[in-house]
Design a protein around this nucleic acid. Structure first.
Length: 265
DNA sequence: ATGGTAGCGTAGCTA
C-alpha cells in the first residue's frame, strides 16, 4: 500500500500534474492540501477516473482545503477543527480493516516570528498546541495511525538549506520547532522519511516560488511530512520525495509529493 | 533591508 501527500496549491489547476503523479507512481491513498475549492466544485469525477473510488474532502473558497483520495474503502471519515476556526485544515479517514489516516494542513504562520506581533504566527502555535492536546488525549495509542500533510515546519537542521540563516524565518524558528516536537511526542509519532534518510543528510519537499530559478543553490525546506505510530513501523517498507515534480510542466506546485510504502498485514 | 512568484477571483489576502 502506497500513501502519498502533496500540497497541490489548487486541485483544479493542478489536475494534469496529479494525473501524471498517479499514473507514474500509483499511490493507493493520496492526501492533498491547499485544494482551494469548495466541496461542490471539487473535481470528483477526475479522481473517480484515476481509480479513487473513496473520497473524503473538506474545502472552502480560495484558501486551505484538504482531501483524502483512496482506492481502499473507508470505515469512517471526519473533519476536525482547531483554534475555533472551521478552516478546512484537518480531515481523517479510517481504512476498513486498516490504519487511521489524518491529512493535515498546519497554518503557515505569516512572516514575523513573534506571536505577540503576528496573529498568524500565534494561530500556528495555537493550532500545534490544540493538535498536541488532541493526540495526548486519545487513549488508543496502540492503534495504527498515520498523520501526514503540509506541516509548514522544517524541524531538523538538515530539513533546511541553511539552519543558521533560517533560524528567524517562520518554518524553522526554535519556538515552532519545539511545538512540533511536542506534538510528535504527544502520540509517539515516528518521522517516516527520516527512517531511511539519516539526519545528517539534507532532505527537502518545498522550494519557493520566489526565486528566479528554484534549482539554483537547492534552497529547499522539508515542510511536508509523513508520521506513523510505532504500531505501523513493522509495515513501513520505503519512503520517497519526488523532487522532479517541482520542475513538472506546466505550472508546478511549490511542494512535491512525499510517499511511503507499507506491507499489508 | 527588501522583494521576489503564485492562486483565487477580480482587490487584496494568503502563502
Amino acid at each position: 500500500m502506497r500513501v502519498a501527500t502533496w500540497n497541490i496549491n489548487s486541485v483544479r489547476l493542478r489536475l494534469p500534474l496529479i494525473e501524471r503523479f498517479v499514473r507514474e507512481n500509483k499511490p493507493d491513498i493520496l492526501c492533498l492540501q491547499e485544494t482551494k475549492v469548495v466541496n461542490d466544485a471539487f473535481p470528483e469525477g477526475a479522481f473517480e477516473q484515476m481509480g479513487f473510488a473513496h473520497r473524503a474532502i473538506s474545502g472552502m473558497k480560495s484558501y486551505n482545503g484538504v482531501a483524502i483520495l483512496s482506492k481502499i474503502p473507508f470505515a469512517e471519515t471526519g473533519v476536525l477543527n482547531w483554534q475555533g476556526k472551521e478552516d478546512c485544515r484537518h480531515i481523517f479517514a479510517k481504512l476498513a480493516g486498516g490504519p487511521e489516516i489524518h491529512c493535515v494542513y498546519i497554518p503557515a504562520g505569516g512572516d514575523v516570528p513573534d506571536p505577540a506581533a503576528n496573529p498568524k504566527f500565534a494561530h500556528k502555535l495555537g493550532f500545534l498546541d490544540d493538535l498536541a492536546a488532541y493526540w495526548r488525549g486519545r487513549d488508543d495509542k496502540a492503534a495504527p495511525k498515520m498523520m501526514l500533510g503540509d506541516f509548514n515546519i522544517a524541524p531538523l537542521e538538515n530539513d533546511v538549506w541553511s539552519h543558521k540563516q533560517l533560524l528567524d524565518v517562520v518554518s524553522h524558528t526554535p519556538l515552532e520547532v519545539e511545538k512540533l516536537l511536542a506534538l510528535q511526542t504527544a502520540h509517539d509519532w515516528i518521522d517516516a522519511p527520516r527512517r531511511f534518510v539519516p539526519e545528517s543528510k539534507k532532505l527537502y519537499s518545498w522550494w519557493s516560488y520566489r526565486a528566479r530559478d528554484w534549482t539554483v543553490g537547492d534552497r529547499g525546506r522539508r515542510l511536508d511530512h509523513i508520521w506513523i505510530t510505532p504500531s505501523l513501523l513493522p509495515q513501513l517498507q520505503a519512503t520517497g520525495i519526488l523532487k522532479a515534480a517541482r520542475g513538472w510542466d506546466p505550472k508546478p506546485s511549490d511542494h512535491v509529493p512525499v510517499w511511503a510504502d507499507f506491507s499489508r498485514p
